[in-house]
């Protein structure tokens, strides 16, 4: 091969690579567009909240004092669930929620890192001491769901789980204070 041929051939090789790189670019653009599209159309966001709360004094915070935990329905009809994730249990251990209504879940940890998911749903967040972890969701099917701690929190991590009871509207009955308890089965 002469030098000019060589250079032409080398350019052709580079050309095929650039073509491939263009395809890669299209793939990346497609994936990112999907993320942007779901963010703009249905408000999909990661569970960011950046709400600081002293983990050492949660029991004095009012909102996360023991008798304010669990499911409550505000005067505006909003369902808010407040849960403590501690070594090695969730408080409360059973969480009632209504089916087909927006629910805001708020979690805090007083001690170490925790995390949770609710099986069969997209509810998934870390619970970092110092912050309120918050997830907005809507449950679509009734039934009992498993809510395990999914982040290593110490030697009792494997036994840390709670139950989420997704109730039909007629069984989701707030008392006079707007509080709801799990149905006894």
């Amino acid at each position: 091969m002469t030098e000019i041929h060589q250079e032409l051939h080398e350019r052709r090789i580079l050309g095929t690579e650039l073509l491939w790189a263009f395809g890669v670019g299209v793939l990346i653009a497609a994936i990112l567009s999907m993320i942007v599209f779901t963010a703009l159309s249905i408000g999909v966001n990661p569970p960011s909240n950046v709400e600081r709360l002293d983990p050492k004094a949660l029991h004095l915070s009012g909102e996360f004092a023991e008798d304010n935990l669990g499911t409550s329905v505000g005067s505006d009809g909003r369902v808010v669930v407040r849960v403590i994730a501690t070594q090695f249990a969730f408080l409360p251990r059973c969480i009632p929620v209504p089916v087909g209504r927006p629910v805001t879940l708020r979690f805090v940890a007083p001690d170490v890192l925790h995390g949770l998911l609710i099986s069969g749903t997209n509810v998934n967040t870390m619970v970092v001491p110092g912050y309120v972890a918050q997830v907005h969701t809507e449950f679509t099917r009734t039934g009992d769901l498993l809510m395990p701690c999914h982040e290593y929190c110490g030697l009792g991590h494997s036994e840390m789980w709670a139950t989420v009871q997704v109730l039909p509207e007629n069984q989701f009955q707030p008392d006079s204070n707007g509080r709801v308890s799990c149905a006894q089965r």
Binding site: N49, E63, N68, R106, H136
Partner: peptide
């Protein structure tokens, strides 16, 4: 604090620790 896509709940009741 809060999500740009959702209103933020509030609760400032004093409870017994």
């Amino acid at each position: 604090p809060g999500s740009p896509a959702q209103p933020q709940p509030s609760d400032r009741v004093q409870r017994t620790p």
